[in-house]
Design a protein around this nucleic acid. Sequence first.
DNA 1: ATCAACAGTTCCGAATTTCTGAACTACGGA
DNA 2: TCCGTAGTTCAGAAATTCGGAACTGTTGAT
Lengths: 113, 113
Amino acid sequence: MRPLFHPAIEDIRPEAILYALSDPERVAIFTQLVAGCGVTCSALAYLGERIIPKSSLSNHFKVLRESGLIRSERQGVEMRNQSRCAELDERFPGLIGAILTAYGQRPGQPKAD
Amino acid sequence: MRPLFHPAIEDIRPEAILYALSDPERVAIFTQLVAGCGVTCSALAYLGERIIPKSSLSNHFKVLRESGLIRSERQGVEMRNQSRCAELDERFPGLIGAILTAYGQRPGQPKAD
DNA sequence: ATCAACAGTTCCGAATTTCTGAACTACGGA
DNA sequence: TCCGTAGTTCAGAAATTCGGAACTGTTGAT
């Protein structure tokens, strides 16, 4: 499998972040990661009112990863995902927090780590 | 004149805001409006390095308007546009500011450090 | 009233992007 | 080895975006 691409912190573009988080399904996924639970891909298939097909889920993770919002690494047969909140909050102060607050889904302080 | 649709402040959805501001051309337009001047549509056709076709420009304004970011009203033969920042900042505290700050920190943009 | 000029919108076809089922790859365990 | 599970990639259909041309609505001039 191709190595997964993660942008360096300085290469992260605001438009990619906003685009990634303009989809409520991706926001729900990201929110779970920020909260620290459900870190694998398949664990999140039942978010919301529908079952997200796994190819769509995989694509959501790719968008989140390539926008710089999350970091993914393979661990055995599954993929561990974690948010890059701490880095992001240094680069774009207050941005992630304000977005999650706006969605009304912020479960904790993204800066905390 | 047929009134243009503007969402009530309580109907504004974060995903619409993020989607609207995930396009750098729209961000450039919005930034001009935030800067204060009630700006017309055609006055912004030369933002950035290309001439934006007027149908595209019209669509950008429509997206901004229907997401709740701006208010537009016809004044004579032209359209005056203004940002809804004050309302928005009450509904989604810090969101617009954090987004504009994030765009202001892109590489290539003036940096405050 | 009629016409022309202008600001912006709408229409619609082409190009691009998104979605998702099916096929596939990668890893671990027996 | 073969099997099951986790996730990715492929490919075609569906949806969205882009932008030129035609159109609408307003003002000012004749």
